[in-house]
């Protein structure tokens, strides 16, 4: 609690009170105030029912439109709802999976993944319809027809074992980040370490973006044998530390720390982290 309070204090300068943020989100005259308020409520984990209700309402917003036809406020509201962890937002987020805006769909998938539960799995599988052949770039846009990374990652972390056969072909998708996301999901769903070893290979590759993405994937699934490769891959220490934190915390939860003492594996990961500070 002390830390949360300090975060609010540190936000001075762009500071809001909880009441102001909710009021800013509810008004419709100034879209930029609403946009910022939605982000702020997520950032500071404001879990009050009034905040949740205002964010859910913002998922249907028609007033704030981007030049590309997108819905900036809906995107921010979906992201915030994922962070706030209130399950009452679940049906409204499911509704966003049909939104015309790619980035709203992506944010809603990530939010549903964070909320957990398997009710969204059929809808996510339906978004893979047509497989790799249908997973093409949208003409004139910097993205594919669906947010495949988010879909694959969510299916993996939500434990959608029935989707394994639909996911596997994406290991051969032409976009390397999509391959990474498929490998990560396949590891989570099958437990086969070969998929993670494939991600470890990416850490030796020449492309910084791919090394970053593989590192985050390995951290997210908690693949402990990757610790050394993450620590030595050429990338920013800040990202390496986040990836290693992911490995460490997965392991700590599996061994029920702090009820049980630290293992030598945990100590080794922390020794690697110490050197990156």
């Amino acid at each position: 609690m002390a830390l949360e309070f300090q975060q609010l204090v540190n936000a001075q300068g762009e500071s809001l009170t909880v009441e102001q943020a909710i009021a800013n989100l509810r008004q419709t005259a100034d879209p930029s105030l609403r946009y910022y308020a939605a982000w702020w409520l997520g950032r500071f984990r404001v879990k009050e029912p009034a905040a949740i209700a205002a964010l859910v309402t913002a998922l249907d917003d028609e007033t704030d439109r981007a030049p590309d036809g997108g819905y900036p406020l809906r995107r921010n509201a979906a992201r915030a709802l994922g962070k706030l962890g209130d399950r009452t937002a679940y049906p409204a987020l499911m509704g966003c999976l049909d939104c015309a805006d790619y980035y709203v769909r992506e944010a809603a998938i990530q939010a549903l993944e964070m909320l957990g539960g398997d009710a969204c799995i059929p809808a996510l599988r339906a978004m893979l319809a047509g497989g790799v052949d249908a997973a093409t770039q949208v003409t004139g846009k910097p993205h594919l027809v669906q947010p495949y990374n988010a879909i694959l990652e969510a299916l993996g972390s939500l434990g959608a074992r029935a989707a394994v056969e639909e996911i596997a072909p994406f290991l051969n998708h032409p976009v390397p980040q999509v391959q990474n996301a498929a490998a990560r999901a396949m590891y989570q769903l099958t437990g086969d370490a070969a998929y993670c070893d494939w991600l470890v290979q990416v850490l030796q590759g020449p492309n910084l973006q791919l090394r970053r993405s593989a590192m985050m994937d390995l951290g997210a699934v908690g693949y402990l044998p990757a610790a050394g490769a993450i620590a030595t891959t050429p990338a920013e220490n800040s990202l390496k530390l986040i990836a290693l934190q992911g490995l460490l915390e997965h392991h700590l939860q599996a061994m029920d720390f702090p009820a049980n003492p630290l293992s030598s594996d945990a100590r080794q990961v922390m020794a690697l982290m110490d050197d990156l500070l």
Binding site: Q245, L248, E249, L252, F257, P258, P261, L262, M270, M273
Partner: peptide
């Protein structure tokens, strides 16, 4: 958790 573990 990572900070708790490092403190331990």
């Amino acid at each position: 958790l990572a900070v708790q573990a490092r403190a331990q």
